[in-house]
Design a protein around this nucleic acid. Structure first.
Lengths: 262, 262
DNA sequence: GTTCTAAATTTATCATAATAAATTGGATTC
DNA sequence: GAATCCAATTTATTATGATAAATTTAGAAC
């Protein structure tokens, strides 16, 4: 009838029923997010207290509290009791972001080769970017990690520990990335692989030669990073990735069998 | 002296040092997560109802409800009223995962060149993987998208629309990825760039030649995908990425200025 | 058989009150 | 005068019960 005039002027006519059954706590949470963006609030900036929000939004205490738990679960606020307490904006931590993304992949079937395809694309590029940019402190830290296990593992327990150490090494490199998106993705993969070692034994039988090669790679890599040799760093990492992939049991397909904890 | 043990002199130092100040709703939420993992529940499987959880965990209704909002915010459950209602496990949707990860980068300073560095690494590889694997339906869909804008944009409004269409094209490719991690990262970047166009004008002045080249790329790419020409697909995408990057205003640095909506 | 209505079930929201945690100011102590 | 303890204050946390809203199911009416 006469209503159809709106169609030409409002392209989002189909989105109109968008204001459907979102619960009140969700609506309140969204309004608070909006409020934070509008005022460009940053980490530590305080939100109105519970009583003020009850008045502001005209909802009950329980509704406000559920809204706060929503924001808290997403890592957007932190809450404290006592005078000067209340809720404040809190940057989403990398750990929280990793856990939340891990929940998504819990329901997917990521394979080790998926992970390694990405590692081979990203990590060589990461170290090429890092070459010549790291400060002495970081280099020292990396060198110390690279020298941490001077001998091949003698027990499965030791082997697991060495593998986790290696992943910490990679995560440390990722943290140094200028490109935070690249750094995040690499950290996420390291975290997935790290969790794996806790629940499964999926490494091939220890192989002294492969192990020695891996160790050599780490040491050479730090050297190349220090000297700013971009392509050498890239090549070492690529070779390292290929070696690491060969050491994994590629049979193991579903690799996220738990929800991550922060 | 009075030893007022009634206060808080119950330091649970005994077994779990980790069990510190996590609130009751968070503890309940974590227990439910464990419960889901233990029983290997999948999407649609039902959780006990509110009353049962109150009894099960020995907490109040409000506490249980806050726990449910936490899980709901993370995308892990969905809740319905009425008979046969209650809470059920719900796969985290890609859209939800993108939003949650977007919250993390809201506080970061991602640059366009960060995004494009990753796009140039991942998207050529994506199409190389896809070459020869797409069904006719998907190919038809892609072809239709590629032919959607036969003329260069005449207004900024049209230009924005064309750019978004291009991002939808890339997102569609990402959805087809076998490697879901790679697909997710590419979708995430498309989403970030898509949101940008809504809030900022950041494209260089329209350039008929560049525009024509971009259009050609999409058409040729679908052709290469259909024929299973891996390296040609890869080359086209790489060239396309370089062109797209040149069209952006690289001055624009902070690119996440809002919380994403689902 | 279809449609309407009422009842039953379950979450959603609200209101109120009691409890716990953290800070602050002041009194007490050395 | 500085440190310590204590009580008052502020704020979130948990609990309880009542009422509303949404949804399904069963039954009644036609």
């Amino acid at each position: 009838m006469k209503n159809n005039a709106a169609q030409s002027s409002e392209p989002k006519i189909t989105d109109a029923p968008r204001a459907q059954k979102r619960s009140r706590p969700v609506q309140v949470a969204d309004q608070i997010k909006h409020w934070v963006v509008e005022r460009d609030l940053r980490k530590g900036d305080k939100l109105p207290n519970e009583a003020a929000m009850i008045a502001q939004f005209g909802v009950s205490k329980g509704t406000v509290r559920e809204a706060m738990r929503i924001l808290e679960a997403q890592g957007l606020i932190v809450t404290k009791t006592g005078p000067g307490g209340g809720s404040a904006v809190g940057e989403v931590s990398k750990e929280r972001a990793i856990s939340l993304l891990g929940n998504y992949f819990y329901f997917k079937n990521l394979s080790l080769s998926d992970i390694y395809q990405l590692r081979k694309l990203l990590e060589p590029e990461l170290v090429a970017n890092l070459a010549g940019t790291l400060d002495e402190e970081t280099l020292t830290e990396l060198r110390s990690m690279a020298h941490q296990h001077p001998e091949p593992a003698k027990t499965p327990e030791e082997e697991k520990q060495q593998h986790i150490s290696s992943l910490v090494f990679h995560a440390r490199l990722a943290d140094a990335a200028e490109n935070e998106l690249m750094g995040f993705v690499i950290s996420f993969m390291a975290r997935i692989l790290s969790d794996l070692t806790v629940y499964h034994r999926l490494y091939a039988a220890p192989n002294k030669e492969l192990w020695e090669r891996g160790r050599r790679h780490q040491i050479d890599l730090v050297d190349a990073l220090e000297k700013g040799e971009r392509s050498r760093a890239r090549d070492i990492m690529m070779s390292h990735m290929e070696g690491a992939e060969r050491m994994m049991n590629v049979q193991e397909m579903r690799i996220t069998r738990q929800f991550m904890t922060e």
